[in-house]
């Protein structure tokens, strides 16, 4: 037996910012190199925009095209895909294939894992919004928001993405693996899109469906974004008769808190 090496002076562990950078780079590469996730998360909303934009055409009055209305909803759906669906499937997959267990056995600070995921969601959300706006402007002559509408756009997107990210992470803990997460979350997200005013005008949906939709973040994200993309005259067509921005912030905020509590209570680094 060889004698053990002499004890080394214990060097300092790497700083949090340096591990955060490393994890962020890992998460960005993992997402953007996986063709399925890029197609599913970034191109599906584009496809829906093109197909539904061609098929559906409501007269909203005030000279506003349906695609202008649809833009708000499809961006909300894009954010949902980049955050909730992405996280639920991604983390469930990493839990079942042993990635999380492996990381838990390293001195990586646990916060770095979540920072990496947040950076991934922010990048994917931003990419999704930019792609949809570009296509909207170039092919559908969407009017871009102006002035303070950008500010509303920003806070609705960030608050909505935060709530949905936390919810997605919580859902990942329930799923057995990535495939089962996808099978649960994808139909549910689609259902929410139908009743939350993404594909159809929210005011035309039966009121009991409106009530159900109002329990979840997507309806509020879409409503907040409609205030960004539609002229204020159309606020009168909303069920409440206004954009209810205060309530949008409140509901999304509540979902953030609820999602965080669920995450903290249910997150696991390994399969049961």
């Amino acid at each position: 037996m060889t004698a053990p090496a002499p004890a080394r002076e214990a060097p300092a562990l790497p700083s949090l910012p340096s591990v955060y950078r490393s994890r962020s780079s890992v998460e960005l590469k993992e997402f953007f190199r996986q063709r399925e996730s890029v197609v599913f998360t970034l191109l599906l909303p584009v496809l829906l925009l093109v197909v539904f934009g061609a098929v559906l055409d409501f007269d909203l009055g005030s000279g506003v095209s349906f695609t202008q209305y649809f833009m708000a909803g499809i961006i909300a759906a894009g954010i949902l895909g980049a955050s909730l669906q992405n996280m639920a499937i991604n983390i469930a997959t990493e839990r079942s294939d042993g990635t999380l267990k492996h990381l838990a056995g390293t001195p990586m600070p646990r916060s770095a894992f979540f920072v990496g995921k947040v950076v991934q969601v922010l990048a994917v959300t931003l990419a999704s919004i930019v792609v949809l706006l570009l296509i909207g402007v170039v092919f559908y002559r969407i009017d871009l928001p102006s002035g303070t509408d950008w500010l509303t756009f920003a806070w609705v997107a960030v608050l909505g993405a935060s709530a949905c990210t936390l919810l997605g992470i919580a859902i990942s803990s329930i799923a057995k693996n990535g495939r089962s997460a996808s099978a649960t979350v994808t139909p549910f997200a689609l259902l929410l899109q139908f009743i939350s005013g993404v594909f159809f005008q929210f005011s035309e949906i039966p009121s009991w469906m409106q009530t159900f939709a109002a329990l979840f973040p997507l309806k509020w994200m879409a409503q907040g974004l409609r205030s960004v993309f539609l002229p204020d005259a159309l606020a009168a067509d909303e069920p409440a008769g206004s954009w209810e921005l205060g309530r949008v912030a409140l509901v999304l905020g509540i979902w953030c808190v609820l999602g965080l509590i669920l995450c903290v209570r249910t997150f696991r680094w390994q399969d049961k």
Partner: peptide, 10 residues
């Protein structure tokens, strides 16, 4: 680990 370190695109 027996279960390895997971799948990766890296």
């Amino acid at each position: 680990l027996q279960s390895g370190s997971g799948d990766s695109q890296l």
